[in-house]
Design a protein around this nucleic acid. Structure first.
Length: 819
RNA sequence: GCCGAGAUGUCGGAACUGGUAGACGACACGGACUUAAAAUCCGUUGGAGCUUAGCUCCGUGUGGGUUCGAGUCCCACUCUCGGCACCA
């Protein structure tokens, strides 16, 4: 295609080379400037990028360049979250080794990032799938292991009986295997966990330290941790010298507990049903529920299923015997795996009681109309006065909650306690493309961690990818067979690899000393540079990645490795770019390729449009027409610079007014752009205000304003645009006769005197409606304004013959008359 | 169901602490330049009405409220999007 407009290809090539040569983005450790760590979530190296991906990097690049001009020593590194399932799937499908496809994708993406003009300190690049990185991921595992924070326990995985393989949640589609469509079941395996639950309270509390995180992300994390206060109550089992404990947040409803339900996985069931008549049926029921995988079990939703155990427990407050059931709607992972069922006041219990004809007893009355157990259509979950509750009758239920908890603690039948929804972090993956877990199993010594000096446990390269029922690592004898680090006897290696979220939970520390051979990071340097000043990434990482990173940081803090306990000071989560109302994806065919755009209009046009499209934290709809608008604007600025030297003029008195107004606009724009960048990254309004300035310059040229002031306006335009469209800005800067990189000059300051206006427009409202506008000198006295207003024809028309009830004057702004 | 975000012209979106609603861009239309087209430049562009150089009324999802004045604050509701979901 023939190039029209400014020669963007030449310009972009020239300046990309220049930045690289000059090392513009190389962080200088000896710089006396204050530090600024600007971090983008490191990407998974995928084969094809679209303009939606670009938004993240473009925003980050604007921030980095702006902070540079503000005089900071900016660190802006980049790396690759390079382990993961897609590469392994590609290996199975196309037979290409994950390492090869991943490294190839990295090269491709790196070129793409450079084509966007985004600058990074490439000397600090990290790649999580390479041994010099994952050695330290394994090291981190060992530290957690030593602290008792890494441990093994049985846990269920999704299992495809046909492929004979473990499936990740995203490989399960509608409860079936994505490859062969077989119904997925659950299988128990010994798996590795990180004990993140030990940090529940701190992870929750410290959210309040994160003043510059989006509120919604903090709320999501808070809900995810899910703290609830309640009471743990012991129910004695009839005929045994034992109790079943349950947790409730609604201890006020205890008198209404008419049965108890256990999760099918509850460990005490085995003993309890030992001598029961229908033991076989119960076992069959438990088997049935457990054979369904978690996803299917959650799907059932409506159908609550259960079975009576034949046993009874005693409600400790009224000594009543109530039946003990097992049901699919009770989860072992939450609380104690046992629930006191109060059908009158809990909807789930209500549905179950209706289905199995269990008694319903009202203990909190609806203040609007008394409840009748037989007539209830649903549970009453709101507040009211206590009834049928012994000594607590008549109390407000909220009050009773406290009183009953006190009563129980006194009598020793229950205690106030807290529960968290957060579960331990399952880090085991039965996969090849991940960091091997550095553990060895020895017949004599059992489970033995490797010594730090024996790291890394290298991932073998020669493996078979075709699915045959087991993790590819299990088929490599050279990997599995080893010696016990303790006794030297023959031993076998752990074949599970680590969740990629482990890799990504600490990479931001590695950037500070990426080539360090003896430790994961240099504590002194890390302590100097962290926490990260600005973290930028997608909202999809609001919970997992950010929570895991916070956890790992806290562990490092406790280990004395670092002196801060939150990794990211400021967080910005950008919105998605959609097209035709849907997220861009190959399957939907709505992908906009950055390569074509760059070929047609250049990277700066794409950058400008991406930033102009809307507020960056919100989702935005891509529109090809809008790109042309950005292109037109850049050319408009380009021509302005081009023609500037030809313009010289000494203004007449009349033209001086235009000159003054342009000068004022110039400085107002500096203020506006700066405010928009400081305030939540409002690039869209910053850019529109520069557009206004450019329009004004065109007008001022037409009206022959002073050449020096026009030049000031044009230079300011170029500088203000530079973080957004760096290539063209550098080129124009040079053409304006300046030397060196525009990013090495300071960000402009506005002149307070220049933005002072001499006259203001005052709006006159009569009965709340705008009726006239008058222009007066700044600071005109109230009396004087009154006089002018009352003499105005447009105003008198509306107040004539009417009584003025109120006359309000707001300085330099507005007059409001009520008649 | 719960939690969160949102609803403004034909479209993307502006409007900071209540003070001219619709900045800026896109689309559309008209004009200038041109042999012509593209590009560029200038102008018009929320709706309705009228006695049409202008003026009036209506207008920010719906209904109510506070206020001299509400897109903005309060109450109730509707819808859309996102996340979580049998959490005791």
């Amino acid at each position: 295609m023939e190039e029209k407009g400014y020669p963007f290809k030449k310009v972009e090539h020239k300046w990309q080379k220049y930045w690289q040569k000059e090392g513009l983005f190389k962080m200088d450790p000896s710089s006396p400037k204050p530090k600024y760590y600007c971090l983008m979530m490191f990407p998974y190296p995928s084969a094809s990028l679209h303009v939606g991906h670009g938004r993240n990097y473009i925003i980050g690049d604007v921030v980095a360049r702006y902070m540079m001009m503000k005089g900071y020593n900016v660190l802006t590194p980049m790396g690759w979250d390079a382990f993961g399932l897609p590469a392994e799937n590609a290996a199975i499908k196309d037979g290409i080794h994950p390492k090869i496809s991943t490294l190839r994708n990295i090269e491709k993406m790196k070129k793409q990032l450079m084509a966007w003009g985004t600058g990074y300190d490439w000397q600090r690049e990290v790649t999580s799938c390479l041994p010099d990185y994952y050695k330290w991921t394994q090291w981190i595992f060992l530290q957690l292991y030593k602290k008792g924070l890494a441990f093994k326990k049985k846990a269920a995985v999704n299992w495809c009986p046909s492929c004979q393989t473990v499936l990740a949640n995203e490989q399960v589609v509608n409860g079936c295997c994505e490859r062969c469509d077989t119904q997925v079941t659950e299988k128990e395996l010994e798996q590795w966990f990180f004990r993140i639950t030990e940090y529940s309270q701190r992870l929750l509390e410290d959210l309040s330290k994160l003043k510059h995180w989006p509120e919604r992300v903090k709320i999501m994390q808070q809900n995810w941790i899910g703290k609830s206060q309640g009471v743990k109550i012991d129910f004695p089992i009839v005929g045994e010298n034992e109790v079943l404990s349950c947790f409730t947040t609604r201890v006020d409803t205890i008198y209404g507990a008419t049965y108890m339900v256990l999760a099918p996985e509850h460990p005490k069931i085995k003993d309890l049903i030992g001598g029961v008549e229908k033991k076989e049926d119960i076992i069959a029921f438990i088997e049935k529920v457990r054979s369904q995988n978690k996803i299917a079990r959650a799907d059932i939703g409506v159908t609550k299923e259960g079975i009576f155990t034949g046993r009874y427990v005693i409600n400790p407050v009224n000594s009543r015997q109530i039946p003990l059931w097992i049901a699919n709607y009770v989860l072992m992972e939450y609380g104690t795996g046992a629930v006191m069922a109060v059908p009158a006041h809990d909807q789930r219990d209500f549905e179950f009681a209706k289905q199995y004809n269990l008694p319903i007893e009202v203990v909190i009355d609806n203040p609007r109309e008394p409840l009748k157990a037989q007539k209830m259509q649903s549970a009453y979950e709101d507040d009211g006065a206590m009834v049928n509750s012994g000594q607590f009758n008549g109390l407000d239920n909220r009050q009773a909650m406290d009183d009953i908890a006190d009563f129980m603690q006194e009598k020793g039948i229950g205690s106030r306690t807290m529960h968290y929804r957060l579960r331990d972090w399952l880090i085991s993956r039965q996969r090849y493309w991940g960091a091997p877990i550095p553990i060895v199993y020895c017949k004599k010594c059992g489970e033995v961690p490797l010594a730090e000096k024996d790291l890394p446990v290298l991932l073998p390269e020669k493996v078979e990818f075709k699915p045959h029922g087991e993790s590819p690592l299990k088929t490599v004898p050279g990997f599995i067979n080893t010696r016990c680090p303790k006794c030297g006897e023959k031993a076998t290696r752990e074949t599970d690899t680590m969740d990629t979220f482990v890799d990504s939970s600490w990479y931001y520390l590695r950037y500070l000393s990426p080539k360090e051979k003896d430790k994961p990071f240099d504590s002194d340097v890390v302590n100097k540079w962290l926490p990260v000043d600005q973290y930028i990434g997608g909202i999809e990482h609001a919970i997992m990645h950010l929570l895991y990173s916070r956890f790992v940081t806290k562990v490092f803090f406790d280990l004395g490795l670092i002196n801060f306990d939150e990794p990211f000071k400021r967080l910005f989560t950008q919105g998605m770019i959609v097209k035709d109302g849907a997220k861009m994806s190959k399957s939907k065919g709505n992908v906009v390729s950055p390569d074509e755009l760059i070929a047609k209009y250049g990277a700066d046009t794409q950058r400008l449009y991406t930033l102009f499209i809307g507020p960056p934290e919100k989702d935005a709809e891509w529109n090809d027409r809008g790109v042309e608008g950005a292109w037109r604007f850049l050319n408009r600025v380009w021509r302005l610079v081009d023609q500037l030297s030809a313009f010289s003029h000494q203004p007449s008195a009349e033209e001086k007014k235009t000159t003054a107004s342009l000068k004022r606009k110039t400085h107002l724009t500096i203020k506006k752009v700066t405010d928009d960048l400081e305030r939540e990254f409002h690039f869209n309004t910053a850019i529109s205000s520069v557009m206004e300035l450019v329009n004004e310059v065109y007008k001022a040229k037409e009206e022959k304003a002073d050449a020096a002031v026009i030049k000031e306006a044009v230079c300011t335009t170029v500088v203000l645009l530079s973080p957004f469209v760096p290539h063209i800005a550098e080129e124009m800067w040079q053409r304006l006769g300046e030397k060196g990189s525009i990013f090495q000059r300071p960000w402009p300051q506005y002149d307070r005197d220049a933005i002072e206006a001499e006259e203001v427009l005052i709006v006159v409202q009569v009965n709340g409606k705008v009726r006239a506008k008058i222009t007066v000198a700044v600071g005109t006295k109230e009396e004087e304004i009154k006089e002018i207003v009352l003499g105005d024809e447009k105003v008198t028309k509306w107040i004539e013959g009417k009584e003025i009830k109120n006359f309000l004057v707001i300085q330099n702004k507005l007059v409001s008359i009520v008649v």
